[in-house]
């Protein structure tokens, strides 16, 4: 067993023993080799199930939404940013959380276990932004020359080429909503796609309905997405769903100088008004 897994188990079991928290959220071994699943330990013995490896792709902030207990949560860089989002959006209070920060060197692509995921390659927040205790030393953040090269490549296309790119991107979508369910931002009690009165969007495999789902789901993440990649890791059809949210992240950075989930004291840009907000789109 590697030292990080050992350390996480020790920290988790000690806070459970001391009664600091009612449960600890982390990862346990999945049902298939090289996979992991979210796991909630309520006793110090259960803490021995925790693992830490490069398959811990899911975002644990997804599971703390609206919980009432005191929770210990194991957080890599992106999880910690989503925890900040949750605190800012009043989905959980900081006092309820005991965050075990894990500096993350990237998670692997589920289809290419010798490669890092795309979003990990461009990640500039490997270290957790908030934590109560660290399971390992902080690591050096990487500097990315052109963080949004992929978005710029699409931006440079003609409108029709863009449209065919997205048509092609979504052609395999089976609307299982795994991307939505894995996403820590998607916590609405009732999602617009599940609503039946009014029915905002058709529920079948119609191409336009699929496009509408992806377009609107992405837009709900504007200024909130941390590019944690849980959506893509969860997708059984290997759809590059981040193609949408990446554009929104780039806009949030360009227009508002904003990266989500870095500061608990700041309101997200789409949630506040500032007289300096860009307004050249209004005639």
């Amino acid at each position: 067993m590697d030292s990080l897994t050992q350390k996480i188990r020790e920290l988790a079991s000690s806070i459970l023993k001391e009664g600091t928290v009612d449960m600890v959220m982390g990862f346990a071994e999945g049902t298939l080799p090289m996979t992991s699943k979210p796991y909630m330990a309520r006793t110090p013995e259960q803490a021995d199930k925790f693992i830490w490896d490069s398959s811990c792709t899911m975002n644990l902030a997804n599971y703390i939404t609206g919980r009432k207990e005191k929770i210990g949560v194991i957080a890599k860089g992106c999880d910690s940013r989503n925890i900040v989002n949750h605190i800012v959006e009043n989905k959980i209070s900081r006092d309820q959380l005991y965050i075990i920060g894990v500096p993350c060197s990237g998670m692997t692509d589920k289809n290419r276990p010798d490669h890092l995921r795309d979003n990990c390659l461009t990640c500039t927040h490997k270290n957790p932004v908030i934590y109560d205790v660290l399971a390992a030393e902080l690591i050096e953040e990487q500097k990315i020359e052109a963080p949004f090269a992929d978005v710029k490549a699409i931006e440079a296309m003609e409108p029709n080429a863009k449209w065919s790119y997205f048509q092609d991107l979504l052609k395999n979508c089976i609307r299982c909503y795994a991307c939505r369910n894995a996403c820590p931002l998607c916590y609405c009690p009732k999602c617009f796609v599940d609503e039946s009165g009014p029915q905002w969007v058709g529920k079948g495999q119609n191409e336009t309905d699929i496009q509408t789902f992806h377009f609107l789901r992405a837009f709900h993440c504007a200024g909130r997405c941390t590019d944690c990649g849980a959506c893509e890791s969860a997708c059984p059809m290997d759809i590059h769903v981040r193609a949408f949210t990446r554009k929104l992240n780039k806009d949030a950075l360009d227009l508002f100088g904003w990266e989500a989930g870095l500061d608990m004291t700041k309101r997200p840009p789409l949630d506040t008004f500032n007289p300096d907000d860009p307004d050249d789109f209004i005639k």
Partner: peptide
Amino acid sequence: MANLFEHMGMEKERLQFS
């Protein structure tokens, strides 16, 4: 929203604000 709309290949003239 207009930006994402345009990003997906809609012509930007189709969504205007005033």
